[in-house]
Amino acid sequence: MKRIYAREQYCINCRLCECFCKTAHSVSKDIIKAHKTEKPEPVSRLFVEGDNMLSFAVNCRHCDKPACVEACITGAMVKDPETGIVINNSERCVGCLSCVLACPYGAVKAGNIAYKCDLCRGEEMPACVKNCPNRALIYIEGGSER
């Protein structure tokens, strides 16, 4: 499956990926509304670690054997057998955060419920990749993970 890979050598710590992820996961899909007015506040599904010297975006690896799915007590967290995308169904998530405790990449975000990358659900190019100004994020066919 296609996955998002981060290349720290080109990550410039601008963190636009976070802004555009948040926008993509907003209702309005408008970057200014998403950040300034929308309630509840949309959540970016990935985050950038580090500083200007060394930084990189961390997002879900969409593992072949996702620990988050195995840890989920509600069945909200599922790996789509066709696309391979691991999605947390926000309707069903009760916010126990077992998935957060299970993910070895620390890629599931803790909030009232768990939030995670959904690869923009079948968009040709996830928002973070599309808007990365330095191609530090790439969306390519990879092998199997974990």
Binding site: E49, F56, V58
Partner: peptide
């Protein structure tokens, strides 16, 4: 605080760059 940043650069590269692809 814990992040992937605490790992060595090689490990970070593996974890974020598809290096753990088998």
């Amino acid at each position: 605080e814990m992040g992937l940043i605490n790992f060595s650069k090689d490990e970070i590269k593996k974890k974020i760059g598809g290096g753990e692809i088998q």
